[in-house]
């Protein structure tokens, strides 16, 4: 990016101040959002130590009363109370969204690394890897979920050990679907990064007596996985958003619950704007988190070269 110089004009300085104010606002919103989620989850797990399970953390009436007393916000008081009334339900759905995304991402990662390595260094396995990634990236995720759920009826075949972990076993089908799909996309990003590692790195590894596999493991991957972080973050963000498709195979995650309430109360506008904002909060958290990770693991002296 150009223009990394010191702000010179008054206008730039003012906009700089705006940026830091915006930053502060963002951090505050983040703390509020995650604080609310964590307290809601813990409250539910511990059987309602803070408020009875199913009740909002703050009484809707209290919010309504407080807002109604402020002339500027009085018109929104009843809407706000309505949203507050929904919060336990939304928090519960968000828990599933977070778990599905997290588990799929991590398991998918462990599939993606061998897929990427096979694609770059394999012969026959390169073709298998290519076929897998092309197939999964070439068909809609929703169709894949339908194949697993409606077509193969996997919901009935959840192993006993996994059964009952979630309120509905179909959650596992969703996790399987997102894992398989995400692995293909992650493999594509990681492959790009593996290819960007200089060939001389493997040669040098081989020259000190490491085997090819050891060279890949100790030399290529530690570099490639670092380089992959920015593009890999995209996949993280995509997965958060596309986890909403689990609703269509009856997984009661965030979108599912929003849709349920909306169809009961007909307050589509409010509910989906709030839901959208919650996804946005998850997405922003993920990308800020990965920016941190990227800075943290950057190789000294190489950081500036990769900055875009």
């Amino acid at each position: 990016m150009a223009g990394a110089t010191r702000p010179t004009t008054v206008r730039e300085r003012v906009s700089d101040a705006d940026v830091s104010a915006g930053r502060l606002l963002l951090v505050a919103a983040g703390v509020l959002f995650w604080g609310w989620l964590l307290v809601s989850w813990v409250n539910r797990w511990l059987g309602g130590v803070v408020v009875p399970v199913g009740d909002p953390l703050v009484a809707p009436g209290l919010v309504e009363g407080a807002l109604a007393s402020l002339p500027a916000l009085a018109t929104y008081a009843s809407d706000a109370a309505f949203v507050v009334q929904l919060t336990p339900n939304l928090a519960q759905g968000t828990w599933l969204t977070v778990v599905i995304t997290g588990v799929s991402l991590v398991v998918g990662f462990f599939l993606a690394v061998p897929l990427a390595v096979a694609r770059v260094y394999g012969r026959f396995s390169a073709w298998l890897s290519l076929a897998y990634t092309e197939l999964l990236r070439g068909t809609p995720l929703l169709a894949q979920l339908f194949v697993l759920y409606y077509g193969l009826n996997l919901g009935r075949y959840v192993p006993g050990a996994l059964s009952g972990v979630f309120p509905r076993d179909v959650v596992w089908v969703a996790i399987l679907g997102f894992t398989l799909n995400g692995a293909a996309y992650q493999a594509e990003y990681i492959r790009g990064a593996v290819e960007s590692v200089d060939e001389g790195q493997i040669t040098a590894g081989r020259a000190i007596g490491l085997s090819k596999v050891e060279s890949i493991y100790h030399v290529v991957l530690p570099q490639a996985l670092r380089y992959a972080i920015p593009s890999w973050t995209n996949e993280f963000v995509y997965l958060i958003k596309y986890s909403s498709l689990a609703a269509f195979i009856t997984v009661p995650e965030l979108y599912y619950r929003a849709d349920q309430v909306a169809s009961e109360t007909f307050r589509y506008t409010l509910i989906f704007v709030v839901t959208g904002a919650m996804y946005l909060a998850l997405v922003i958290t993920a990308s800020k988190l990965m920016e941190r990770v990227d800075d943290r693991v950057a190789i000294p002296g190489l950081g500036a070269a990769r900055e875009r």
Binding site: G200, Q201, T203, A204, G205, A207, I208, P222, Q223, I299
Partner: peptide
């Protein structure tokens, strides 16, 4: 032992 023209140092170490 081998020493390379382009050094080939492991960039992440």
């Amino acid at each position: 032992g081998m020493v390379f023209q382009g050094f080939n140092l492991f960039a992440h170490l």
